[in-house]
Design a binder for these strands. Structure first.
Lengths: 211, 211, 211, 211
DNA sequence: TATGAATGAGGCTTCATTCAT
DNA sequence: GATGAATGAAGCCTCATTCAT
């Protein structure tokens, strides 16, 4: 009985009874998470007092700690979630493409699109990519979603569609180029110009990659 | 007053007394700056108490505040210095090159070399590139050293040596690619392999840029 | 309201519904009290959050406050109960003895036996004997069970069986000696050695008391 | 140089320069210690916020933590000091006595006198004798001052001046009797009556101990 | 110039208690 | 009766900064 009571504590409630209950139960939790996302990206981890998060989220200070035992646990949860969401968005039907190069380009396109549409999450990911506030396990979990990309690069090299250079380097530069591209494209508010920038950027990157 | 303190930096003190005094006086200031560089990159701005900086630098807490009115002024000074040093290193005889593309490649090579040889400074620059701890004026001053690069890109396009795409985009992606390249190359400790990585990376970038 | 809750304790609920209900209703109350006893002795009053008590007792946080309006009321109830139980145990057929000295010795023996057999309660009594967490009225109520001892000491002096010294002093020293004796005897796990210790201790005390 | 600076930090200052400096430097430290002593005995450890200690001591909150890294370190320091002071007071020329019994009685007398004259310290010692707020090492250090008493008891038994019972028990009961005696004697404000109580109490205890 | 004791606002977290279900 | 999410005051501790020496 104790165990049961304990487990219930921190789970998003398994929808016992009506959906309304479950939804309402985690409403505060979600408010806290989304507020934290905004504030962390705007002001950094140490620059954002938990008191500010709870105030902006419209809950009491204690409520934040009811859902997240520590500030670290809050940012960790956020990190895992966003990494996972990004990975999922990135993979949207990339497997319909034939070559590894085409697959990568599709993935890149997806990533950029998602980054532009979710600027706060994008900034969050960049900001905390190597941060020590995020636990090692969360970093590893986040990383795991992206490991297949390295394989894809290797496949491309084997296929001959991708230039034969150090796959780690390629991956590293591709990733950082995407960051730069997203930053620049996001600054451009006109949709068609932005679309053009994205394509130019992808050309730039994949020109460099072609065998 | 801030300005005064700062100016002292590069003027080895007019005369007044002996040179020894001046040298000795600046010694503590330099110890503080170099300690702060290490600690800020390792632990971030808020993660580094001024008391830790002064302890590690081997001076009293009051001494730090004698040289730098606030913690912000300390990081600002560091930022200006490092940006300026990086810019200078980057430009090492780039003008001997003929085309804009070649100049850029030379600059890129210099930048990467400096980044690998000064990892703390490199990390510091990346970490605080968009940070709000650094004053706007310091950011602008830092930026100013690099504006000529945009012009160089434009020149290259005009010349026909560089692909005709949005110069801002090109600049952005080039810069971020360099970051990725430095990160990867720094991880490689063998000098000749590292050299090869750097060249492969530059090829990657400049293949994408070529007209 | 406090009083009402308290009275419920010893009155197994008049009628109203079945006995089962009453029994079940009190079950949680008892679980809370016994859990609190253990935790308070192990960790002190402030060291024991009510949330821990309710968790270990296997009830919800709200349930504790249904039975005890405040944390103070909980410890107060515990205190009254234990004091009363101790007093009762102490008095087990002491009146069969003839002299005041013999009565006191019997009482002492009972007290020590009870203390050894109920270590948590014994510790609780010592810990909160002068504590401000327990209300003054509870302290007075607790004290009242033991006042007759002072009279017994006085009787003994009058009878000539007890040495003529300040009764308050005698009482005080007797009580504290018992504490010391219980502590030492409890540490001895072998029953017969323990019995010997108890008797040696009683001899020590009553040698000093004899006229 | 760093090391030097570090060591200086928490030491009571080795009287470098004039005595005035040293005295003044630790004035706040002493105020904090004596205030904490009073408050801890009156309200317990958890019942005494550090903010109250600093307020009553007339210093800022930060000052307390400048001298004592944690609340635990504060109580630990207090504990060590008081235990050591008590031990010293207790031993005042006890060696002029001949038999172990006489030595113990002299020690007892000293202890009681000190306890009456330093009621706060006496209460503190009793209250935190087995407390978990005080570190194990401090407990051990405190205990070490009193170990010779057990030997003295054993000597007395060997000599034949002390009754042959479990030395641990004797020690335990003696110690707790002293507590009771001090408590009772302290309540008596008239000096000559108090003196009489003390002697009666000692008679009580040492009557019980005599062979 | 250099020191380091002193300050106090502010940060993270705990916990007794309430209340709608 | 029972639940557990929600509250917010209060606790411990940190740290940028000041100032007398």
């Amino acid at each position: 009985m104790e165990k049961t009571a304990e487990k219930r504590l921190k789970q998003p409630k398994p929808a016992k009874g009506s959906d309304d209950e479950a939804k309402k139960a985690s409403e505060n939790r979600e408010k806290i998470l989304s507020t934290a996302l905004t504030l962390f990206t705007e002001r950094g981890f140490f620059g954002t007092p938990t008191s500010l998060i709870s105030k902006e989220a419209g809950v009491a200070t204690g409520t934040l700690f009811f859902y997240f035992a520590t500030k670290e646990e809050l940012i960790d949860t956020l990190y895992r979630r966003i990494k996972s969401e990004a990975a999922q968005a990135m993979c949207r039907n990339f497997n319909t493409e034939k070559t590894a190069l085409a697959k990568l380009r599709r993935i890149g396109y997806n990533a950029i699109e998602w980054g532009i549409e979710n600027p706060a999450k994008q900034k969050f990911m960049e900001q905390f990519a190597h941060s020590s506030f995020v636990s090692t396990t969360a970093h590893e979990e986040g990383m795991s979603h992206f490991l297949f990309l390295q394989d894809l690069v290797r496949d491309g090299i084997r296929e001959g569609s991708i230039r034969d250079i150090d796959p780690g380097l390629l991956f590293c530069m591709m990733a950082s180029s995407f960051s730069g591209l997203i930053a620049r494209a996001y600054a451009e508010k006109d949709p068609s110009l932005r679309e053009r920038l994205v394509n130019e950027g992808l050309d730039f990157i994949f020109n460099g990659m072609k065998a």
